[in-house]
Design a protein around this nucleic acid. Structure first.
Length: 505
RNA sequence: GGGGAUGUGGUCUAGCUUGGUAUGAUACACGAUUGGGGUUCGUGUGGUCGGGGGUUCGAAUCCUCCCAUCCCCGCCA
């Protein structure tokens, strides 16, 4: 922040300059509000929402972002949602080294190849035997330890998760929360005695992800399996939750990998079974990142700024007293009383001086506070407050006696409404196609298109090439079977499964 | 990696063609005013014009080298 002279201001200016339409657009260029509409320029809009809600900021370090307290708080709430779910089934949190010796990478060939373009290496110190990488993911460093920890069937299942950050250097196009060179995530890594148990839990973690996305973030997702092209480097199969952003691009929000026995073999993890024989265990790994926050912001927010699902908001209510000189003391006193009444919702009492009420409304809207309570002399006289919902803007006059009930109801309704609205969008933006023209029409209509595919990797790559970026997103769990006689939309060969296609972040 | 552009207070920006040490807005600080949807006014803080070199009496402006960043293509969860 202090050294913003060079890098900092350029990051910012470029951010604003990117979609610059004309030199003198007469928008209120640097007032605090959002100066573009979500529908007009979603990239610029998104950046402003994130920046002005003070969730995150660009740093002077290229490709790296800063999670500000407001944004980090959301991450903590996500942690608090997932941790109880996973600990309940036996996962324990731990922490492994940031650096990974080069030799570890090479142990699993596919894994090494898949990650090599984006690994950041530490310059080799003369005293060190080899170079070290900053982890892009921790399979290798963790499984090296696992190989020493797992001896007997009694040591299984081994379930460990870590909350940390990873670095992937390939990403040049930084978008706050969505893509950066370093991001916070969790990665769970489990080892099992049987393939069946391993697969079952792989799916269990994916289900946890769905719950976090839908129940906490109010972002509806599609569950599916990645195609072989797209699966995690070194995995047997990758399962994912995918959401659809308002601009029609899909976003991978979490993955759970069934690793099979590949890593176990590469890292020498084995155990003595009940029968006394040496056996190779089965593994999975699963992760989601702060990208979840980006998906949430993009899904719900509007032209006035951030919209937070109530469950995610710390301060669920902003109380704005309408102050006049002659009634000031009385109004503030009443506002404090209401603040106390609602303290379980952690309301903020906005008694800042020098700002008009309207200014404060905008400020809280920008920051995504779910509910606003306006309280002025007129309300006090009528023994009521004005309750305003952030998502709908609906104003309601609520008698004092009903405040608690109405607030509770409004918060629940808002959480549900955000999810339903997003779900309706997802459904209306999803379509099916059985042949190429319909497929292209769907894609051009910014939809997620479910279409039969041959499963060929070259064919898949060709589609990406021809359409300039349309990729397979996932094979859905429901509706993955093509109709009898269905053929691949691209090559015309017999279709193996139905797969979602779309553009992606 | 290939191509195109840009760099002026914290942020955005005028000035560059035709050289004379910088414009406006916003933000920030203080004071007043105002207060039911971004109140108004005043005062003030803040700039080695990305960096080095050159031309010139004089460079934000002209020349040159360097640096940084962004956009398009490529690559990428």
């Amino acid at each position: 922040m202090t050294d913003g002279q060079h890098n900092g201001n350029q990051q910012q200016s470029n951010h604003h300059a990117a979609p610059r339409p004309s030199p003198n657009n007469d928008v209120k260029a640097d007032t605090k509000g959002i100066t573009v509409k979500k529908n007009d320029d979603i990239a610029e809009w998104y950046g402003q929402v994130v920046a002005k809600a003070e969730l995150a900021d660009y740093s002077s370090l290229r490709g790296f972002i800063v999670l500000r307290p407001n944004g980090y708080l959301i991450w903590e709430r996500i942690q608090n949602e997932l941790n109880p779910k996973i600990t309940k089934i036996g996962v324990r949190n731990a922490y492994f080294p940031l650096l990974i010796p080069e030799s570890f990478f090479k142990k699993e060939a596919e894994h090494a190849e898949g990650f090599s373009p984006e690994v950041a290496w530490i310059e080799k110190h003369p005293d060190d035997p080899e170079r070290y990488a900053i982890r892009p993911t921790s399979e290798t460093i963790m499984y090296d330890s696992y190989s020493r920890w797992v001896r007997s069937w009694r040591d299984l299942p081994l379930r460990i998760n870590q909350w940390c950050s990873v670095v992937r250097w390939e990403t040049k196009d930084t978008k706050m929360f969505i893509r950066a060179r370093e991001f916070l995530w969790q990665e769970g890594h489990c080892v099992y005695e049987t393939e069946r148990e391993c697969h079952k839990e792989t799916m269990k973690y994916l289900e946890f992800y769905r719950q976090v996305a839908e129940e906490l973030l109010a972002v509806p997702v599609i569950l599916g399996k990645k195609t072989d092209n797209d699966k995690f480097a070194g995995a047997k199969a990758t399962y994912a939750i995918e959401s659809l952003m308002p601009d029609g691009k899909s976003l991978q929000m979490g993955t759970s990998h069934d690793l099979g026995q590949g890593f176990a073999k590469s890292f020498g993890i084995s155990f003595l079974g009940k029968d006394g024989t040496t056996q190779t265990p089965w593994q999975n790994s699963w992760g989601f990142s702060t990208r979840l926050i980006g998906a949430m912001v993009m899904t719900h927010s509007d032209d006035k700024g951030l919209v937070l699902p109530p469950r995610l908001a710390k301060n669920k209510i902003a109380i704005v007293p309408i102050i006049f000189d002659d009634t000031k003391a009385q109004t503030i006193a009443k506002a404090k009383e209401i603040q106390k009444l609602l303290k379980r919702y952690d309301p903020v009492l906005d008694d800042r001086e020098g700002y008009s009420a309207g200014w404060k409304y905008n400020d809280h809207e920008l920051h995504g506070v779910p509910l606003r309570i306006e309280l002025g002399p007129k309300d006090i006289a009528k023994e009521q407050v004005v309750l305003v919902r952030r998502d709908t803007g609906e104003k309601k006059f609520v008698p004092n006696a009903q405040i608690l009930d109405e607030v509770r109801h409004a918060l629940d309704a808002m959480q549900a409404n955000l999810f339903e609205k997003a779900k309706a969008f997802l459904q209306s933006s999803t379509t099916e196609a059985s042949e190429w023209n319909a497929f292209i029409a769907g894609i051009d209509g910014k939809k997620l298109v479910l279409a039969p595919h041959c499963s060929g990797a070259e064919c898949e790559a060709e589609i990406k090439e021809v359409t300039k970026g349309v990729t397979t997103r996932c094979i859905p769990f429901k509706g993955d079977k093509p109709a009898a006689g269905a053929v691949c939309i691209r090559c015309g060969q017999k279709a193996k499964y139905n797969v979602y296609f779309g553009r992606a972040y």
